[in-house]
Computed example of a mutant assay.
Amino acid sequence: MLDALTLDQMRTFVAVAETGSFRAAAARLSRVQSAVSHAIAKLEAELGVSLFDRSAHRPALTPEGRSLLADVRAVLLKVDTMRARARGLGEGLELGFTIALDPQFPIGLATAALKELHEAYPSVAVRIFTASLGEAVHALRQRRCALAISSVDIPDPQIERQALALVPRAAVVAAGHPLARRAASREPVTAAELADQLQIVAEDPSPLTEGRDYDVLSPGTWRVSDNPTKHALILAGLGWGSLPLWIVERDLAEGRLVRVPAAEFGPEGESLARVWLMRRTDEQPGPAARAFRETLFRQAGAWGATA
């Protein structure tokens, strides 16, 4: 009978499917291998189908097993989400929480929201770390943070995403750089012209998007780990690159930097980066984290760049 199915059997099924063996699943679940084998046999008996082909050295999912795996994962996801919601309803104020912050997001908005948070919840400790490109999502998957603010769109059924803001970016170069003289003509700079010059780009520290390049047009690149270093190298005239406008607007106004009207990026070399606020669906934020989320959305709306 299907009513006799247990969540333990389902989690064991997923563990074997993901690890590729009963022994590896037993290690993941901290059980003996015989207990894993028994749970799978019991599940197969309840369902009336074979989930694994055991004729080879390693168990392989049968067609029925592959079909049911998605259903089992969906059931477990719903259960974990319900448990997280119940825990959140029963818990009081958290001692603290961690935020993974994408360097593209305007730091002024983040600090304004954090200031309000501290005034409302002075006893709550907050840890913030910079997480470029896919690192914020990676940290959330690893439970190294409660909230992630990221400009990289990586759909995941275990992560709830809310579009937070649209951040303007611009391709820029130092005033004395050859591309600055080319930009003075007011004609769009071609991809071929950009490829002739060194480009300063951000390096991805996460395995989720490792090896993927975003808006890299030049075969010659220098890679950096953060926006301040990228900004400094561009200001020094070493190369060109794209940076959030909130970082370079003063340099543009005072003539130290010049926009590169690169057609690849959009009019006047400008583009928009969508930033998401993310959390795990199986972990309910505490009162302080929820308050921070609400304040952050309000600040983004007042800034005028809501997504």
Rank of each mutant, 00 (worst) to 15 (best):
P228G: 04
A291M: 12
L238W: 03
D204E: 09
L235K: 07
P287C: 03
R223S: 13
D282A: 12
D204W: 02
R298D: 15
Q299Y: 02
P219L: 01
S271A: 14
S218I: 07
W222Q: 15
T221P: 00
Q284E: 14
W222D: 09
E264A: 15
G286F: 10
W246F: 04
R250W: 12
W222A: 12
A263P: 06
N227C: 06
A291Q: 05
W222H: 06
P287R: 03
L272N: 12
N227Y: 11
R279I: 01
L245E: 05
I234G: 08
A262F: 01
L272P: 05
G220M: 14
R298L: 10
I247N: 04
G255V: 11
L277M: 03
Q199F: 10
A262S: 08
E294H: 11
L233M: 10
W246K: 00
G211T: 01
L277V: 06
W222G: 07
L208Q: 08
Q284F: 09
F265M: 13
R298I: 12
L277Q: 09
D204S: 08
G239D: 02
R256Q: 10
G237K: 10
R256C: 05
A273T: 13
R223I: 08
G266Q: 03
W240L: 02
S225Q: 08
P205D: 10
V201A: 15
S218Y: 06
R274Y: 00
T229Y: 04
E294I: 15
P244K: 00
S242E: 12
P267G: 05
E203Y: 13
P261F: 06
P228R: 02
K230I: 02
R259G: 02
L296K: 13
E210H: 10
L217F: 15
